[in-house]
Design a protein around this nucleic acid. Structure first.
Lengths: 236, 236
DNA sequence: TAGTGGTCTAGACCACAAA
DNA sequence: TTGTGGTCTAGACCACTAT
């Protein structure tokens, strides 16, 4: 896929300060010429970068590089898993719990699988640079992800599923809310019961449309911040 | 723009249950034929619907209509303002404070304007069906939005800026976090100081790239939930 | 093997910004 | 008026699914 590679190239170049002078990307035409691709690919690539908040295009003027506000921010879009995302930081993952259970009716409904389906139930506590960041309560469909052991769970499950198993992760939907921490979860975050938490409930799907994973993640309100760019579009 | 209109049409049709039988959209080719547009427009339209979480495409198979999990959820993407979004609910907006101030150095940096620029500073408390939903602390650049009075602030500012002023809102970036409520904000939400809040810091831009608005919004943790679909893409 | 979504090209024309 | 991004078309070919 040329346009994804191009997006990656441009992203690297922006990071390396190649366009620092003008704070603009070259024109679509120049990029197309430079990388020997069509305008279609250029626009697709820029689109990706726009959604990541790296550039914004202004019709008639150019494609401007954005100032970043994301110091320390996690991101809801560019989701390659924590381990991949925070490469500058030390991410530590502690596996609190790991077992295979059979889905009861409620969990089966949540996981969109049949009751009795074997599921991994995993609890992990993660820290960034030694500071507690999040506690994850996760189910994985074992019919899709056959093997998860302690060692795999301590690493990047995202990477494992994608690279080792070769599965094609396509999209996830999330529900975001805030809530009071339970005593149990608070203890894992070095916080008090009743303290606030950012809560993200996540359902992840393969490109076949099959759900393989549902999770609830509690984030440390003192350290976790999320960045998100919203493109605004008037459909009515 | 044909593709936006097409997206709107398909969205309406999905809502009306037109595709209920198969739970799938017609093929790209059929949609193109049916609406007398090219494949480009069809794909752009479906893309929008995908990002809104309404459908998901499976290569080689079809475009499937998604079950919704969004009961009562607000959304981070489809942002046409609360008033437009929750049309089934009664949204009440109370203007707590409205004045014009001159930007000091700190606010000027935040708003990316010159110190001394006149800004509206507005505090609004919003409720849904009588239940407190959010408290917004907002700055508007008065050089861009010349007039905001009590009546306008009580309605949909989003709609006003777009329809009445004819300005082209393009994107917003948001930082999401959770925090403890101050006494003042808690009182406006019928909650206690120290209770959790979902906090969204928002910066909104015109299509010219100019920032016109910065806000911090505190949401009632008991009633506010946000839906978000993440498309996953491997750039490396 | 046929059907369907995904990528890519070349080229026309429109809309908006800047000089 | 020129430059630049946005929309649109027609058509080729690839990748994956279903049968």
């Amino acid at each position: 896929m040329k346009y994804q590679e191009l997006a990656y190239e441009i992203k690297k170049d922006i990071g390396a300060g190649v366009y620092h002078e003008s704070d603009k990307l070259p024109t679509e035409e120049k990029l197309a010429e430079q990388y020997k691709v069509s305008k279609y690919c250029v626009r697709n690539a820029v689109n990706i970068l726009t959604r990541l908040g790296l550039v914004y295009p202004v019709q008639g003027s150019g494609m401007y590089i954005r100032e970043q506000r994301r110091e320390d921010c996690l991101t809801l879009q560019d989701t390659n898993g924590l381990t991949e995302e925070l490469t500058g930081d030390t991410i530590n993952t502690k596996v609190i719990h790991l077992e295979i259970i059979a889905a009861d009716d409620i969990i089966a409904a949540r996981m969109k699988c049949n009751p009795g389906t074997p599921l991994y139930y995993i609890i992990r506590a993660r820290s960034r640079n030694g500071i507690p960041l999040s506690v994850e309560y996760t189910y994985y469909n074992q019919e899709i992800i056959p093997v998860i052991d302690q060692q795999i769970a301590e690493g990047s499950l995202f990477r494992y599923i994608r690279k080792e198993l070769g599965l094609n992760i396509s999209f996830a939907d999330k529900i975001l809310r805030s809530d009071k921490l339970s005593e149990e979860t608070a203890a894992l975050l070095d916080l008090q019961a009743g303290d606030p938490a950012m809560v993200i409930e996540d359902e992840a799907y393969l490109s076949s449309g099959q759900m393989y994973n549902a999770s609830v993640v509690y984030y440390n309100y003192k350290t976790a911040r999320f960045f998100e760019l919203t493109e605004i579009r008037d459909l009515s």
